[in-house]
């Protein structure tokens, strides 16, 4: 079954903390990480965010590591390509293939390491957000962006029906599996097409039914938003500021690539 991180966020002890503070922390980490010229600040961010998610957010370490390995294939593939093709400097190792020389030099390796660390820091910020802030809390944030109401309403209803359809999809998939629908890839493709079609028809019908039931409750284009006042606590503010300061100092010290 797919792990939906939102389900973990809903029971997170950090769920009922101030949304804007959490968004500030994530935004800060993402921006500093991606603009850093050294791998040190991103690693520091990754460490802090992972610690916060696991320790304060009470996410099990095993689960955290599992989801962290999800992007690994893409990242490793890309990092290897970068290592081979990018940068100058002394060659560390190389080999000939089809009369074509492939080598990794220090510049390439540095770049690969940097990209790797940025991705790691970015992903750990994303995980912090995903595992501590359920989507239902973020809708009021979305509302504050002043984007068109229709867009936000569609987002909210989409959220709701993603879970309805996920359940349907898994139900059908089980039913197909027990009738040997995934025994080889040809069968699987056909099963998947039937699944998608059933899902498509179901979603179409659902759309009509929802409209009927919304009209029955006098729908005239207004959805209620749910926002609660959650003041930022002093200790949260202190901790966040310390974290910002440490990372900024690291970022300042490493802003010229040659120091490390």
């Amino acid at each position: 079954m797919t792990n939906i991180l939102d389900d973990y966020a809903l029971v997170s002890p950090l769920r009922y903390r101030n949304n804007w503070l959490k968004i500030a922390i994530v935004g800060f980490g993402v921006l500093v990480g991606v603009s850093s010229q050294s791998f040190i600040p991103p690693f520091a961010i990754a460490l802090c965010m992972s610690f916060t998610t696991v320790y304060f957010g009470k996410t099990s370490l095993k689960f955290y590591l599992t989801i962290l390995s999800a992007p690994a294939v893409f990242v490793l593939l890309s990092v290897i390509i970068i290592a081979f093709f990018f940068g100058s400097g002394t060659e560390i190792f190389g080999f000939n293939i089809f009369n074509y020389h492939l080598g990794v030099n220090t510049g390439g390796l540095d770049m690969a390491l940097l990209v790797f660390s940025r991705t790691l820091s970015g992903m750990s910020c994303l995980f912090f957000l995903a595992l501590t802030t359920p989507m239902v809390e973020l809708f009021s944030v979305l509302k504050a962006t002043k984007l068109p109401d229709s867009f936000i309403e569609i987002s909210m209803m989409m959220y709701r029906y993603i879970f309805v359809f996920l359940e349907v999809a898994w139900g059908i998939k089980y039913a197909q599996t027990v009738r040997l629908g995934y025994k080889d890839w040809r069968t699987a493709l056909n099963s998947l097409a039937m699944l998608s079609t059933t899902l498509f028809i179901r979603s179409w019908e659902q759309g009509e039914k929802i409209f009927i039931s919304m009209s029955a409750r006098c729908y005239d284009g207004k959805l209620i938003f749910f926002e609660e006042k959650r003041p930022i606590r002093a200790n949260e503010l202190v901790l966040t500021c310390t974290y910002f300061a440490v990372v900024l100092v690291l970022w300042y010290l490493t802003r010229i690539n040659s120091i490390f």
């Binding site: 809708f139 909210m156 309805v164 659902q206 929802i210 919304m214 959805l223 749910f226």
Partner: peptide
Amino acid sequence: SDDQIFAPTVYQ
């Protein structure tokens, strides 16, 4: 009930 409850939270 799934035809009727479309909002992301009970409150909404």
